[in-house]
């Protein structure tokens, strides 16, 4: 009888301790949100441009993670981003919908600007400064080239310009040898057909 009591008590005590440990662990190691969304969001270029059809990078990341959206909708991210997301999600890479373009930045023609602040409100990364009835201007270092400021401008004074290439950011191209070209071409076709 006592043996039975011991067994019940000890098992009960063990269950209690294990229960407390689990309860504490749940509080301490609680994961906020979906870690997959975070990971995908980290791969996206954060232009917040909406070209994927979602209102920003995070919403697109959520859609991809939930299996709602395909991996190939990020236009500024280009092929590299698509491949990285496909790799992370464990799905087959897909052809990009649009060709990636050269990096652009917005430029406000200040003498035409009427100071309406509409572009400031449209900019998803706060890269335009100005005040009502004052000229606005784009902080070129912060502009992601998303073009969201173009459409709201009532006087059409915003241009998209080529982002100036800095000599410090120049990098060596592949060597101009047949083998380097072959390898590169093979990689391109491989990525395209996969």
């Amino acid at each position: 009888m006592t043996q039975l009591l011991y067994a019940l008590l000890s098992l009960g005590a063990f269950a209690l301790v294990a229960g407390i440990v689990l309860a504490v662990a749940q509080k301490v190691f609680h994961v906020e949100g979906d870690p997959m969304v975070e990971k995908i969001d980290n791969l996206l270029p954060q232009t917040q441009c909406g070209q994927c059809g979602y209102p920003g990078c995070k919403p697109y990341a959520e859609a991809v993670s939930g299996g709602v959206a395909d991996v190939n909708h990020c236009v500024p991210g280009g092929e590299r981003t698509m491949l990285a997301i496909a790799d992370l999600m464990g799905v087959e890479p897909k052809d990009l919908e649009a060709e990636a373009t050269a990096p652009m930045i917005a430029f406000v023609r200040e003498d035409e600007c009427i100071g309406c602040t509409l572009c400031i409100k449209a900019c998803p990364v706060d890269a335009i400064i100005g005040a009502p009835k004052q000229y606005h201007t784009v902080i070129s270092d912060h502009c992601t080239g998303c073009t969201l400021c173009i459409e709201p401008c009532p006087v059409d004074c915003i241009d998209m310009l080529m982002k100036p290439e800095l000599i410090e950011h120049w990098s060596w191209p592949l060597p101009d040898t047949q083998r380097a070209r072959l390898g590169h071409d093979r990689r391109e076709t491989h990525a395209g057909h996969a």
Binding site: Q46, Q48, V125
Partner: peptide
Amino acid sequence: VFAEASRKRS
């Protein structure tokens, strides 16, 4: 680095 800064601003 640029994406991270853009995200922070956004």
